[in-house]
Structure formats: structure tokens, C-alpha cells
């Protein structure tokens, strides 16, 4: 892809800055290196401006779509794939309503070209639940009423769930940091914090219980 090396570079920078857990970073770096090597070996093909067939892996399933290279991932998910859980609010990377995961790392779908997401594992809000069973963070949002109009909620949940993956024991300040880019006009923040911290606490307790039953420290 035309901008593969660019996006890889910036994403690595982001990962470094975000202080991702070491194991994830190692895997990420290996993938990134492989992509860079591939990009160096092959000259960038010219794509577009017309539509072209693209395969996207979304929530564990392959989707074949015909899109123009200029389509953002957010537009493509919503208009071409029909996954409208990902919201577009500012369309310029300043509100995080469109947050999805690319290879399990939060990314702004309105600032990502869909063709740059080929070969990546895309996770949207629709992919977080297991069937009809909500992800823990989703359930906690409902329990704490961490949503009102709900338009920021998918992005907010994607940010919070990702935080708990990389930091299983966050403090309030960590949650605030994780959603510092997620704008909400209804004022759900206090309950977003409470919901996320409660999931972290539940997971700690569960881990503690497992530790007890196996006789090992959690």
C-alpha cells in the first residue's frame, strides 16, 4: 500500500509513547518490521483514484468491499460494510468517537484510510461482545449508566477496554488519560470512570480467586 511505511512509522511512535505492555510491543515491532521489509522490497503500487476491490478483516471475519483509496476506514465501515456502531462526529481526529482497534491498538477510523487497514485485524464495537453477551466493559457501562445519548459510547468503550488490556490495574488518572481524547457532550465521564475502574477491580478479584484455588499468587 502506498502509505504503509508511513502509517507503520507513526503507529510505532504512538505505541512507544503510550507505553504498551512489553509483550504486545514485541509482537507489534516484529509485525511492523516485516511490513517495512516488504515495503522496501516492492515499489509502491499506484492505486486509485477509482474504486478497487479490497479485503478487510473485521471482527474476525473477512469482508470484500469495493472502495476508493480515499475512503476512510470510518466511512467504509459505516457505508460499505454496514457496521454503523463506529460513529463519525468531528471527522478530523479530535473527538475519538470513531475509535476502533487495529491489531488491538486503538486507532481513529476517521483518520485512517481503509486501504491502510488491509492486512490488519480491525476490531469495532460490534466485535467486542461475544454474541449477545456484552464485554465486561460494555456491561459495566450499562450498569453505571455511563451513557446517555450514546453517540460517544462506542468510542469511549473501545478506549476503556483497550486501557484495561494494556493496564489491568489503572488508577482514576489513567482512565482519564485513556479517554482524554473521547469527547462526550452529555457529561457521562464520571460514570465512565466508575465503570472502567469497577471492571479492573472485578478482574483483579477474579485473578485473586484463581490464584487462591490454584494455591499460587495471582
Amino acid at each position: 500500500m502506498a502509505d504503509e511505511h508511513k502509517s507503520t512509522f507513526s503507529r510505532r511512535g504512538f505505541l512507544k509513547g503510550a507505553g504498551v505492555a512489553a509483550a504486545t510491543t514485541a509482537v507489534e515491532s516484529a509485525n511492523a518490521l516485516a511490513r517495512e521489509a516488504q515495503a522496501a522490497a516492492q515499489p509502491d503500487p499506484t492505486l486509485g483514484p477509482g474504486a478497487l476491490p479490497v479485503k478487510l478483516r473485521i471482527n474476525g471475519q473477512d469482508h470484500a468491499v469495493t472502495i476508493e483509496p480515499r475512503y476512510t476506514l470510518a466511512e467504509t465501515l459505516r457505508n460499505n460494510v454496514g457496521l454503523t456502531g463506529t460513529k463519525v462526529v468531528c471527522d478530523r481526529g479530535s473527538c475519538s468517537a470513531c475509535t476502533v482497534w487495529l491489531d488491538n491498538v486503538p486507532a481513529l477510523a476517521c483518520m485512517t484510510l481503509a486501504i491502510d487497514a488491509t492486512g490488519r485485524e480491525i476490531t469495532t464495537i460490534e466485535g467486542l461482545a461475544t454474541g449477545d453477551t456484552m464485554h465486561q466493559v460494555q456491561a459495566a457501562f450499562v450498569k453505571h449508566d455511563a451513557l446517555q445519548c450514546g453517540f460517544c459510547t462506542p468510542g469511549m468503550i473501545m478506549s476503556c477496554a483497550a486501557l484495561l488490556e494494556r493496564n489491568p490495574n489503572p488508577r482514576l488518572a489513567d482512565v482519564k488519560h485513556a479517554v482524554s481524547g473521547n469527547l462526550c457532550r452529555c457529561g457521562t465521564y464520571p460514570k465512565v470512570f466508575a465503570a472502567t475502574l469497577e471492571v479492573a477491580q472485578q478482574r483483579q478479584q477474579t485473578a485473586g480467586l484463581v490464584g487462591l484455588t490454584t494455591g499460587k499468587e495471582a
Partner: peptide, 12 residues
Amino acid sequence: ARYDGPAKAMGK
């Protein structure tokens, strides 16, 4: 709990 909470939280 909000009647349509799960629908909103799940992106539905």
C-alpha cells in the same frame, strides 16, 4: 439501568 443501554453499548 437504561432501557436501551445494551443496544447503545454494543453499537446496535
